[in-house]
Structures are given as structure tokens and as C-alpha cells.
Nucleic acid binder design. Structure first.
Lengths: 158, 158
DNA sequence: ACTCAATTGAGACTCAATAACATTCTATCG
DNA sequence: CGATAGAATGTTATTGAGTCTCAATTGAGT
């Protein structure tokens, strides 16, 4: 069943490419499939590794070239955590606006539904006569309390 | 009068340094003063230029070493605009939580009071048993409509 | 199958930020 | 007040994510 859903998204990706006059290549499909089998949040480098498992000819440059296509087609989204590298996440079935809560110790990312925020950000921006493209509520936190519960697994290594 | 206020902040900075057993150096003071005479939002490189006007011995490394001290002492704040470099702003008299609205065309940054957000972000994080360190609401927008009003002065150059 | 533009991989490159290290300078103590 | 320890500095090299170049390859319409 999970496979069927992924294939459906893959179809969307193929349609997106052809509609834009772009080619459906093995590398692009490998990168797409990697994005949809990566864990929740992944970096470009994570994606490169995963994609190379599916097609070992995939290069770093191609991953970076594919990422804008995947975001433009709304299949993945950027998750900016204020570090000097970006995270991404597959848009599997996200409907509502989400706030991102990032643990500064273990870099774990929680995404929490926050539908009210979407309206709020728009209101703020439109007061300035700006047209909203994107918005994010980011909360930097520490999971001291979580450690005792075993939910904070990583110690900041990157 | 403006000078008096700045001197007051400078005193805070000096106290911060000595309280932490750090030294009050010319370079650190030059960087502090530069931060408080830069425009609204500045990059590390902007700060280096301004600081060198006050003390031409200031090096890039020292600026990068001073920035965490200035943020830790709450005299400046990071303003992350999702680019690959960071902006900073002096905390002159900001009391309330502010949302950041960034024009994707001209890179102009608007900071808008959004006191409600502070409560909201905390609520979200504390549901996860996380202790909040910092939070930001960032809205990416385009100022097409502003251009006609002449408020969008820069065309993306960086 | 043929063709040609789109796409690719390899590697050079950019640029913000950091690290290493020998030298300089601050603040304290005698 | 001058000596001293070690904090801070500038210089230079380095990192690392992301971008660019270009010759070689490949997809897809014919």
C-alpha cells in the first residue's frame, strides 16, 4: 500500500517533468525515490547517499539540480533550521501549515500542525502590501526533559 | 541622546565580558560600536567594514568570534532569512516578539510586532516537553505591489 | 535507428564561516 | 609600576555546502 502511494507521487513527478518539457531520467527517478524512502528529514548529502543506493551513477550536482524540481513540483519541502545547510522533507500527506520545533542539542525536528499561523503570517504581510510566498514558524528548544524519557537519541555531532 | 543610550549598552557589554572573565579589548568595542551604528540589518561582512572604520586592525576572524558574544549578551540578534549567510540586528529597544517579513526580490527585511506569537510558539514546544530557547516567524514575500509605490528600492544583486 | 538538445558526472570553483598557531596585549599580582 | 600568564588577536589555511563549466552521454520525437 505504501508503495502504491509512492508510485502515485512518482507519476505526479513524471507529469511535472514532461509538462515542463524536461526529461524523465533514471537519475531523477532515483533521487525522487530516495527522497520518499529517506527518513523524515534529510539533507542534500543524505539524499545523495540514498539515491546512489538506487543508481550509483547519481552525482552530487544532479542531486542539487533535482532538488529545485522536487520543491517546485511540491513533492518535497525545504525545512530551514537556521544551520548552514538545509533539510528537506517529503510532502507525503501534509495539508496544514506546520510549525517546526528543533532541538538545539540533538537536532531532532518536530513538525506540529499550526493552522492558525498561516492566516496570521498572511495578515501581517498583507498589511505591508506584500504577497506571501512562504512562511515558517521555527522554535529552537532544548529537550533536557526529553532525555530522561529517551526521546532525544542524538548528541549533536554535525 | 542617542549616544548616551549606546554608551549604556556598551556598559552592558563590558559588564558581560568581565562577568564571564573575558577581556575588554579595543577590537571588541569597535565591533560593538559598529553593530550599533550599522543600519537596521547587517551581515558579518558589513560589520567587518564598519568596525574597520573605527579600528583598522579588526580582522574577519575577530568579528566572527565577537558575534556569539554579542548575541549571547542579548545586544544583537540573528535574523535568518534563509540565505546562505546570516543577517544580524542590534537590539536597541525591542521588547515584543517580532515576525520577520522578507521580500524575496529586494531582500528588504521588515520586522513587525507579533506578541501573540511568543505565547503560541511556547505553547507548541511545551506540549513536546521542550524548553524554548528562541523562536521566529518568517514570512517570505514579494513586493510587486510595493514597487509601484517606490518602497522596493533594491533589485536582488547578492 | 537517427538526431540534437537536454542532461549528466567530474572536478574546479565560490564564499561564508572556522581552525591553527605564532604574536600581541590585557588585567592582575607582586 | 613593571612583570607575567594566558586570553585575544591577525594571518593564513581550511572546511563544507552549494554552484558552475564543459565535454561526454542519453532521452525521446522523428
Amino acid at each position: 500500500m505504501k508503495i502504491e502511494i509512492k508510485d502515485q507521487y512518482q507519476e505526479t513527478f513524471k507529469e511535472f517533468l514532461t509538462r515542463k518539457g524536461l526529461r524523465v531520467t533514471n537519475q531523477r527517478l532515483a533521487i525522487f525515490n530516495a527522497a520518499f524512502t529517506c527518513g523524515d528529514h534529510f539533507t542534500a548529502e543524505d539524499l545523495l547517499d540514498k539515491a546512489r543506493n538506487l543508481d550509483d551513477s547519481v552525482s552530487r550536482a544532479t542531486v542539487y539540480r533535482a532538488l529545485p524540481l522536487l520543491t517546485e513540483s511540491n513533492l518535497i519541502r525545504e525545512v530551514d533550521v537556521g544551520k548552514d545547510y538545509k533539510y528537506y522533507a517529503a510532502n507525503k500527506d501534509v495539508k496544514t501549515f506546520q510549525a517546526q520545533v528543533i532541538c538545539m542539542d540533538c537536532e531532532k525536528i518536530f513538525e506540529i500542525d499550526a493552522p492558525f499561523m498561516e492566516w496570521y503570517g498572511k495578515t501581517v504581510a498583507e498589511k505591508l502590501l506584500l504577497s506571501v510566498e512562504d512562511q515558517r514558524l521555527q522554535v529552537s528548544a532544548r529537550c533536557d526533559q526529553l532525555k530522561s524519557k529517551g526521546s532525544c537519541d542524538r548528541i549533536s555531532q554535525k
